[in-house]
Design a protein around this nucleic acid. Structure first.
Length: 492
DNA sequence: ACCCCAC
């Protein structure tokens, strides 16, 4: 109930904030908003990028991270005798001219990233084996499965041939936008299968069977469409699970995912299954290997998973009031130049409370969580993606996959812990959350707020699990430490 | 708890 009023509360606070200049500033205007792929190491490719010096510098880093074997360490395990050659260019993949044009003209890609170079031949080469693919946050996984789906669709068959299932409505919409952009010249049809505003138009008119060639959506809606025979699966060639570890986890969408997979396989034994995520913990890895048979796999060691371009910090705070004070005085007050910010909290209630506190103090922040109505969720995400808002408070609804390149700072206002065992950090959620900053090798910072001894212990475990020490900001009471940290991270 | 559905 209370949550629904949040958007209005936010917009009514406009102009109350003395720190906000009269002229509306776009928080995205400092960087190009295209997903710039890591370019070839040759001078030529870099100059062709035609972006500013900062971006070229960052792309060099991307190359260092993604293209040097010593740094990337993606381990590939293939089965059978199908030989796969890593694709050094998109031409190597025998794509249609229309699809290549989409990659170069619409997406402004130059060459495949590391994960794309390895996974795309595996996806596109007969006998189209299943694939479990792990790769770093922001390294271009979406392109792998979107291109995989587009390349395997037969344009002459006007029936669903590729299906992608995502954990949230927002991620489905985002993936659909990528697919439509990349497939712009192919004429391939697509449909987003996510819940729509309930009461009004749902019941009034019956839904027609889906004829789109590619369908992307959330488990509930997909399941419903399948059971109502509105989504035919007999011609399905590819089934993708984005954020696959969560889609197959017991406390994720395991039941729905297995049901969908089995329903497809009952009619169609040779549907290729693709599983993508930045994280696969041991439990899920074991389970997954029972679900898919005769599959190829790509894995990254957990110690290699932290992004090097991302600087992580922790700061110890005495109480809740100090936490809000630090957000206000140490970040929002000097944050005019640090790009967009996402503040993660553990509960919807916590999100609402922080939202109210900051709005009452006169700051323009927006908040998203699952209790908001769908219209508001869409609006808040769109405003943030359009660069109209700078600070977004979020539950884990946006922890995974959300791609906004201008996010330079992620704050763990609450540390992520496992629900079943609060003394255990949720390592995967931690990694996904911090991966919202530093997309595609860009610079970024993470601030972890620690309040209790329990928080200190959780943080220690996270540091040791990823073998990546997190620097301490010495005093929450002084501005200096935060400035130093943001400078160190390259944001000031 | 967080996310996804409610035929």
């Amino acid at each position: 109930m209370a949550e629904v009023t949040e958007t209005t509360a936010a917009s009514s606070s406009e102009g109350k904030n003395p720190a906000v200049p009269e002229t509306k500033r776009l928080w995205s205007d400092e960087v190009d908003d295209e997903e710039v792929q890591p370019t070839a190491t040759e001078e030529k490719a870099v100059s062709e990028l035609n972006v500013d010096a900062l971006a070229i510098d960052e792309n060099t880093k991307v190359n260092k991270f993604l293209d040097e074997p010593a740094d990337s360490r993606i381990q590939a395990v293939t089965t059978g005798d199908t030989p796969y050659t890593s694709a050094s260019t998109f031409e190597d993949l025998n794509l249609s001219p229309e699809l290549l044009k989409g990659l170069y003209v619409e997406m402004k890609f130059q060459k495949p990233s590391k994960i794309q170079a390895i996974s795309l031949p595996m996806i596109m080469t007969p006998p189209y084996k299943d694939l479990i693919a792990q790769a770093h946050n922001g390294s271009g996984k979406t392109t792998c499965f979107v291109l995989g789906m587009l390349s395997r669709v037969d344009p002459k068959q006007q029936r669903p041939q590729a299906l992608c299932i995502c954990p949230t409505r927002e991620l489905s919409i985002q993936n659909m936008e990528v697919l439509r952009k990349m497939g712009k010249y192919t004429g391939i049809s697509s449909e987003c299968a996510v819940p729509i505003e309930s009461r009004t138009n749902n019941r009034s008119r019956p839904q027609l069977p889906i004829s789109a060639q590619v369908v992307i959506g959330t488990p509930g809606t997909i399941k419903r469409l399948m059971s109502q025979k509105k989504l035919g699966v007999t011609d399905m060639k590819v089934l993708v699970f984005d954020e696959a570890d969560h889609m197959l986890a017991k406390d994720g969408f395991q039941d729905d995912s297995l049901r969908i997979m089995k329903d497809i396989q009952r009619f169609n034994s040779h549907c290729q299954v693709l599983l993508f995520s930045a994280t696969f913990d041991e439990t899920v890895k074991n389970f997954v290997s029972k679900v898919v048979k005769d599959y190829n796999q790509l894995f990254v060691k957990k110690e290699d998973l932290s992004l090097e371009s991302l600087k992580q910090y922790k700061v110890t705070l005495p109480d809740e009031l100090a936490k809000i004070g630090v957000v206000k005085d140490r970040i929002l007050e000097l944050g005019e130049n640090i790009g967009q910010i996402i503040i993660f909290v553990n509960t919807k209630r916590s999100a609402s409370m922080l939202h109210t506190s900051l709005v009452d103090l006169g700051y323009e922040v927006t908040t998203i969580h699952g209790a908001l109505n769908l219209e508001d969720r869409d609006k808040i995400v769109k405003e943030f993606k359009d660069g109209l808002t700078q600070v977004l408070i979020s539950t884990d609804v946006l922890a995974r996959g959300f791609d906004q390149q201008q996010v330079n700072l992620v704050i763990n206002y609450d540390l992520p812990v496992k629900y079943e065992d609060q003394s255990e950090p949720h390592y995967e959620v931690y990694l996904h959350r911090i991966g919202r900053a530093g997309r595609f090798g860009r610079k970024g910072a993470v601030f972890n707020f620690l309040m209790t001894d329990h928080d200190l212990m959780i943080m220690r475990k996270i540091e040791s699990y990823f073998n990546s020490p997190v620097a301490e900001i010495p005093s929450w009471g002084s501005e200096e430490g935060f400035k130093v940290a943001l400078k160190e991270a390259g944001l000031l």
